[in-house]
Design a protein around this nucleic acid. Structure first.
Lengths: 213, 213
DNA sequence: CAGCCTTCTCAGCGAGGTCTCAGGTCAGGG
DNA sequence: CCCTGACCTGAGACCTCGCTGAGAAGGCTG
């Protein structure tokens, strides 16, 4: 049945990966950056039930649509309690499945956080969180705005005038304040990690290395 | 009354179908793909009570708002136990009805679990109950609304302006009132338990830690 | 009407963030 | 090798932001 679904969904325009047992599926879900997971309860090696539980325990919030036989050991309430986002019992209509998938994808499209990255440096504008090599970094609002601007233009050389305009919203301020804040940033995201992501381009401005320095 | 409601809601921009008895309503709910169902308890042929029960038994999770006379055979707890998502007793204000409908639609846009959690902090919107580490916490309506909003957006930084818009339904109020209520909340859900779930992000707003602080 | 609860305003305070300044360091050109 | 201009940085003044206690206003209940 999985193969049939795969062909059908691919014809629908989805890109589909298939896992043949729970362990493989869990591994793929962890590392594959999927938009959605379709999870059968009855799986070899590790039940869909446990795959779902495990993913949620790891704070992986990928949308999950569960499938199960009607009289299975687990019922819909269990599935939803475990953190599944939707649930279908066999036999289900293929059309219904696709409709539910689209609904889940639509729902999630709006919430998907746009996280900026440069090497092992990441910045999440919505959560206002910055991480270097998976450890959190605390920034003040001004520092955060500056880093966000540099990351949005990573690999480009950005002049102090541009920075003043976009981060400070002025143009006739002493550019030294930019130098000062670049210094603050370096001491928080580069120096403690032995990196050099924020580079000075003498006479031109600064460049944030796209590979994180 | 049903016809009056239909006209009012249509004026409000909703598309409304009307059923004249329980059996017809059940049939329409089954096949109509509605965003929400408003269900009177007292119906000819099949009570609203039984319509709700039947739909849930069929694993139809369309949001249901129940209406009933004040001293009816069934009370609010019965309705909620049956799987209704919200409940109004007659006489009710039309404005309140619309507000609840919108709240249900909004809530269901994410088909989230009925109970919001963040670590050992939990909030049940339907039952208006909050618990920290399994012990109940008493909140005023305003405090509850604020916590609910923060929990729906846990881990995100939420600005005072957003909070004012969604919890106070204004945008040009002195943001200090938010600070005051955040203070109240902390003294009820964080301080007595030695937690720090509600974090200040200076210059940006507040963040409710997803793991409960 | 009295008492209680809730909401909201206000003003003071203290921590933390921003920015200026001056002196130090460094790169590049003559 | 020295000069010059660009950049870096430590120190500190200033001031904004957020927290809090006090209390007024309004509503609900008994």
């Amino acid at each position: 049945m999985a193969a049939a679904l795969q062909r059908g969904l691919q014809a629908e325009g989805f890109a589909v990966d298939l896992a043949h047992d729970g362990e493989q599926g869990l591994h793929q879900a962890r590392h594959g950056d999927y938009d959605i997971v379709v999870l059968d309860i009855m799986l070899p090696r590790l039940s869909g039930y446990n795959v779902c539980k495990q993913l949620r325990a790891e704070e992986n919030w990928v949308p999950i649509l569960m499938l199960s036989a009607k009289d299975g050991e687990y019922d819909m309430a269990d599935g939803l309690d475990l953190g599944a986002d939707d649930y279908l019992t066999k036999p289900f209509s293929y059309v219904v499945l696709v409709a539910r998938l689209r609904a889940l994808l639509r729902r999630d499209a709006g919430r998907r956080p746009a996280v900026l990255t440069a090497g092992d440096l990441s910045l999440d504008p919505a959560r206002r969180k910055v991480e270097r090599a998976a450890s959190p970094v605390e920034l003040t609002p001004r520092e955060f705005a500056l880093l966000e601007y540099l990351m949005r233009r990573h690999d480009e050389v950005v002049s102090k005038a541009e920075i003043l305009e976009h981060v400070w919203d002025t143009f006739d301020t002493d550019p030294n304040v930019v130098e000062v804040y670049v210094g603050y940033l370096r001491r928080k995201v580069d120096v403690p990690f032995g990196r050099n992501a924020i580079q000075t381009v003498r006479g031109a401005g600064y460049r944030l290395a796209g590979d994180g320095g």
